[in-house]
Amino acid sequence: MPTTTYTVTGMTCGHCVNSVTAEISKIEGVTSVDVDLASGAVRVDSSTPIPTTTISAAVDEAGYQLAD
Rank of each mutant, 00 (worst) to 15 (best):
Pro49Leu: 06
Gly63Pro: 10
Tyr64Glu: 05
Asn18Cys: 00
Arg43Gln: 14
Ile55Tyr: 02
Gly10Thr: 07
Val59Glu: 12
Val44Cys: 14
Ala38Asn: 13
Leu37Gly: 10
Cys16Gly: 11
Ala62Glu: 11
Val35Ile: 11
Lys26Tyr: 07
Thr12Tyr: 04
His15Tyr: 08
Cys13Arg: 08
Thr53Ser: 15
Ser32Leu: 09
Thr31Gln: 11
Arg43Leu: 09
Leu37Cys: 11
Ala58Cys: 12
Ala57Met: 03
Val17Gln: 05
Thr4Lys: 10
Lys26Val: 06
Ser56Met: 03
Ser46Pro: 07
Leu66Arg: 02
Ser47Pro: 09
Leu66Met: 04
Gly29Ile: 04
Leu66Tyr: 02
His15Val: 13
Ile27Asp: 04
Thr53His: 12
Ile27Ser: 08
Pro51Trp: 00
Ala57Ser: 12
Ala38Lys: 14
Ser39Met: 05
Thr5Leu: 01
Ile24Gln: 07
Ala58Leu: 10
His15Cys: 06
Ser32Lys: 14
Asp60Gln: 14
Thr3Asn: 09
Gly40Glu: 04
Thr4Met: 08
Val30Asp: 13
Tyr6Trp: 01
Glu61Trp: 00
Ala38Gln: 13
Val8Tyr: 06
Val17Ala: 10
Val20Thr: 05
Gly40Asp: 05
Tyr6Met: 05
Val35Ala: 09
His15Ile: 10
Cys13Phe: 01
Arg43Val: 15
Thr21Ala: 13
Tyr64Trp: 07
Val8Ala: 04
His15Asp: 10
Thr3Asp: 10
Lys26Gly: 03
Val17Met: 11
Ala58His: 06
Glu28Pro: 02
Val17Phe: 10
Leu66Trp: 02
Thr9Pro: 07
Ala22Thr: 14
Val30Phe: 09
Ala41Asn: 14
Ser56Leu: 02
Val17Pro: 08
Thr4Tyr: 07
Glu61Pro: 01
Ser56Cys: 02
Thr9Phe: 01
Gly14Tyr: 03
Thr53Glu: 15
Ala58Met: 11
Thr31Gly: 05
Ile50Ser: 04
